[in-house]
Design a protein around this nucleic acid. Sequence first.
DNA 1: CGAGGATATATCGTGTAGGATCGATGGTAG
DNA 2: CTACCATCGATCCTACACGATATATCCTCG
Lengths: 248, 248
Amino acid sequence: MTGPAPIRKERNDRLDVTRPRALPGRQMLTASVYEAIKEQIMDLELAPGTRVNMDQLARDLEVSTTPVRESLARLESEGLVTRRSLQGYTVTAQPDWSDLHELFTLRRLLEPEAAREAAREPGDDLVSSLRSTLDDMAEPSSAVPEEQYRRHRTFVEADSVFHDAIAAASGNRLLRRTLAGMHSHVLLYRLYFEAGVSPERSATAEEHRAILAAIVDRQPEVAATAMRDHVERSHERVLGRTSALRPT
Amino acid sequence: MTGPAPIRKERNDRLDVTRPRALPGRQMLTASVYEAIKEQIMDLELAPGTRVNMDQLARDLEVSTTPVRESLARLESEGLVTRRSLQGYTVTAQPDWSDLHELFTLRRLLEPEAAREAAREPGDDLVSSLRSTLDDMAEPSSAVPEEQYRRHRTFVEADSVFHDAIAAASGNRLLRRTLAGMHSHVLLYRLYFEAGVSPERSATAEEHRAILAAIVDRQPEVAATAMRDHVERSHERVLGRTSALRPT
DNA sequence: CGAGGATATATCGTGTAGGATCGATGGTAG
DNA sequence: CTACCATCGATCCTACACGATATATCCTCG
């Protein structure tokens, strides 16, 4: 990796122009820090189980501790880190069989509804965005081992975008927020990465295609069923690939 | 109200005894502040739409701004407050028709599953705890208007405990956390309170009784159906009582 | 008299410093 | 070798400071 990747933008970026005022409201620093920490957790720079040093993080990101505190507080409420009374934060441990079961149970309950609603009147932007994720997931011809990392990453990213796009298109903001808050792609990415295996790209892409087809055809029930199948098969695939877990 | 109710516990509560050490880890100040703010939001001391002044809150609770910041960050990720770039925090506005629809859609998807799992092998503690909430919801003979407030409050509290107990008994921690994170009782309490009406206690209690009966009988599917009915009827009741909302 | 702009205040965002407390490591005495 | 104690490190909490911004007030001009 190329160092901790500081966030800090240059200080004197404010010109003498009276009012540049391009963006409506400048984005909060806390938001950047939040994304950066989530990134580090996803990339296993902050491995599961390790303790998170707030000051260290603040130094690395070249910000003060305040936005780090706020980000960690939010990450804790989302379950990515755990806080113990006077022991600081620790990255949530790798999910075990039970955790995965819970995660996929919720996804199986929620995502078909998202697909159903999204298929009622899908916008062109949704369809094109879903199509582009399918392109991103396309299997490259061959890759040297060091490229595996990036390929795996883009695959997970595309998968995440696919599901989030459908959730967004459902029109149900709470549903989308809830699904996003589970951070399933973060958990699964870490899990796959630790297990050293890649997900079955072709099967996933095939199921995504089926969902997309149902959405394009505006068949809500078909889309819901396809999504349910997809989530269930994903669950099975994850269990099959990470058999370091006891079934109850 | 009786003033802002400071949180601060006495400072010199540590005795000379070598190791009192009763509680494993003393509870974090942030946790108390979080609960206090949530309480104020629920009680409409912080009304929907009002801006939240961090310094003011810190002064009222007699703590510094840091735990207030952390609590607000968490509350924001849970949707109870909203943060805008340089405008501070605002209490999330009263839910409109669309928000309620989203909320009950998710509850309809999730809570039947919780009831189903809870009914598989319910513990005695679950049953007794559910029974006690039914007692708390029992209709008092009569009440002076100023008592209405407290009765309404205990009713909502009992309802919340009932649903959370089932979610907890489902064994699915993520499911429980997700349901709790919606803060539906906070939203509904505020909504009822503003509308100046009370929920239909008897109907709610009756449906709760049906759910409890199914759980006691260990009939998961019956429990799930009863829960689904309950959520759907609750939705209808809320819509009927707060018709300041347009259906799309 | 009304509208537009400039000033002023309160508040937010962020950063830094320091005191207090808890856990841990290492040394010393028995 | 074991038990106790002291120092050290880390973290939590608090307090304060500075720059930036939004809202409100007031003034000027048409």
